[in-house]
Nucleic acid binder design. Sequence first.
RNA 1: GCGGAAUUGGUGAAGUGGUUAACACGCCGGAUUGUGGCUCCGGUAUGCAUGGGUUCGAUCCCCAUAUUUCGCCCCA
Length: 422
Amino acid sequence: MITKPKGTYDIYGIEAKKWQYVSSVVDEMMERYNYGFIRTPIFENTEVFHRGVGDTTDIVTKETYDFVDRGKRSMTLRPEGTAGVVRSFIENKMYGDAIQPIKLYYNGTMYRYERPQSGRDRELTQFGVEVLGSSDPSIDAEVISIPVNIFKLLGLKGVKVNINSLGDNESRNNYRDALIKYFKPNIKCLCEDCQERLEKNPLRILDCKVDADNEILKNAPVMLDYLNEESKNRFEDVQNYLDVLDIEYEVNPRIVRGLDYYSHTVFEIEATVKDFGANNVIAAGGRYDGLVANLGGPDTPGIGFACGMGRLVMALDKEGIELPISDGIDAFILYVNKTEKEYAIALTQDLRLQGFRVETEWNSRNLKGQFKQADRLKAKYLVILNSEDLVEGKIQVKNNSTKETEMIKESEIDDYLDLNLR
RNA sequence: GCGGAAUUGGUGAAGUGGUUAACACGCCGGAUUGUGGCUCCGGUAUGCAUGGGUUCGAUCCCCAUAUUUCGCCCCA
């Protein structure tokens, strides 16, 4: 049997309906926030991600889907949304647009060459926003508020916002040095992975699960103490605006995020639902003031977030939230002989064109089978055709919950359904 | 890239080194010659992930591979 590639998913049936519904809520919310939809390519020149994300980390060296196309160009399936959007921002010279800042949102699939595990697939769907051209702390608060309000609209309750500030380059470098200085003498007390992190990315030691309760880690220098005056004020402003927007949050100095391009505000939104497993962060993001310049554009500040659709839907499921998904059809049309069948498929189309959700029999089942089928489809009404009735211009309609049956004129079927269903 | 667990039909699954691989649900058909959802009867895996090996004989034991799943690394 031919199977789907490792780490990918087929989403259909009720699951697909949930995804579509969540997407529609996202669209609706983005519309209200005045973010314009942007659709960028699913693959880009490899360079976009190497320069965007930095090409020393594991991310780019072993966790992207790379391929060489027939023109010998090196391509990469997008592992995240930001780099492509920024590339587009630069290429289309959006920095010259009359309306600033540029506010964009996307919703699409991303690809990561990882070993699949709970909440982490090789193909994932994310939506997110990017705001380019504003460094005002109030826009940071807006960007954080968007996923929070989307979750609220969906009915998700167990949501926790963690924020932190990495400060500007100066602050971050000072902090980095301080961390290395602090950990170096005690390095033997940390786990093996942390010993390696000290060289590669000391900030991530703070995020370690193994050493989470380690005294050495608890007493480590705190980022916030290393923010310079300007960065500190900026972070306070962000918090102030979050308060103004009535967004609950917690300052968590351990939120560091992985990448170099982040500066100032970083945040993670976790689902606090039980049994969620290790990957409970459903949305995350931060400010990336250096990224546009890194990718060859004019020095432009930016901030964004991304939200994993799969994890979000999973969180909704775990909380037992019922989404308003329209389930069941308006009517099922039953028939037996050929005359009735012809009438049935014509009537089916006719009613559909008038806006009803209608289905009929396609597998030549007997009447009993058709009743069963109608029930499975959760048909609200049954239209039972009979050649003799049709000769008289009449149709039998049965309410499938009360079982009441009525004979009506065939010309009145749409009015009848209209009256009873709407 | 590293480690643990798993893999039997449409589904949930039982099972054993040796004739026809339980049981349940579902589905299809019939009892009921055009009005069902109950009941009863019948039909539904030449097959136990794939490839090797051990054996007189393997779905069952061993090895490898794939996939699933849970972790680690990493996390955009």
